[in-house]
């Protein structure tokens, strides 16, 4: 359905126009910068923990846009208009995941290069981090959209989103950061977790949207 491509494009435009796409990246950089301040300028130590720091910061940054992924469209009646046109909510959620990933992952991966410089990461570690982010961020984007659909319209949605999303994102963190020491085996598990999230999240989000409607 070409309508879903239109939805991806619209969400992407709104993410950039609203400044919402830049915010998580700024937060991500800020979070990584905190670690050298807290731990001190020990280059060897920073290089050792740097990869894990980037992964943890990426996870926290992924939480920021959760509130505006689904709830505004639910309130504005946009999802209703898609529904009366015969679009399934799972397909709409899949389009939203694609749009969120496109708005979120490339800037984050660019920012990871800057973060690696700040943490004095060796080039091969940076390479593994970027590869891991490329594999893991689709899962993170899927989880964000599913969480967003689950908490849409609830009071204290943002606090609840953190409680729902972060525990489920732990496998991504374990295998993402683990790939820095564990190598290809951890990357394969990271890909498996990411795939499960991408495959399942549209249906969870779709069901959550429908349940919220009735």
């Amino acid at each position: 359905m070409s309508g879903l491509a239109a939805l991806v494009w619209r969400d992407l435009r709104r993410a950039w126009a609203g400044g919402g796409a830049a915010l998580p990246v700024a937060f991500f950089l800020l979070a990584t910068i905190l670690f050298p301040f807290a731990i001190g300028p020990d280059a060897a130590l920073l290089a050792r923990i740097g990869g894990g720091v980037i992964w943890a910061a990426a996870l926290l940054a992924a939480l920021l846009p959760v509130e505006r992924l689904v709830a505004p469209d639910l309130e504005a009646g946009v999802l209703d208009q898609f529904a009366v046109r015969g679009a399934s909510m799972a397909a709409v959620a899949a389009a939203k995941i694609a749009a969120h990933w496109l708005a979120f992952a490339p800037p984050l991966m660019l920012a990871a290069v800057i973060a690696a410089g700040l943490l004095d990461l060796p080039a091969e570690t940076l390479g593994m981090v970027e590869l891991g982010l490329l594999i893991g961020t689709p899962g993170l984007a899927a989880l964000a959209v599913a969480t967003s659909a689950l908490v849409a319209g609830l009071r204290g949605a943002s606090a609840l989103a953190g409680l729902v999303m972060l525990p489920l994102a732990v496998p991504l963190l374990i295998f993402g950061a683990g790939s820095l020491a564990g190598g290809p085996a951890a990357l394969k598990l990271l890909a498996a977790v990411s795939l499960v999230l991408v495959a399942g999240a549209p249906f969870i989000a779709g069901a959550a949207i429908r349940a919220g409607n009735s």
Binding site: G77, Q81, V84
Partner: peptide, 15 residues
């Protein structure tokens, strides 16, 4: 037949 819905919310991007 196809449905056109006018609901409470206008579903038009405000910006």
């Amino acid at each position: 037949g196809d449905i056109a819905l006018l609901a409470e919310a206008h579903a038009l991007d405000p910006e």
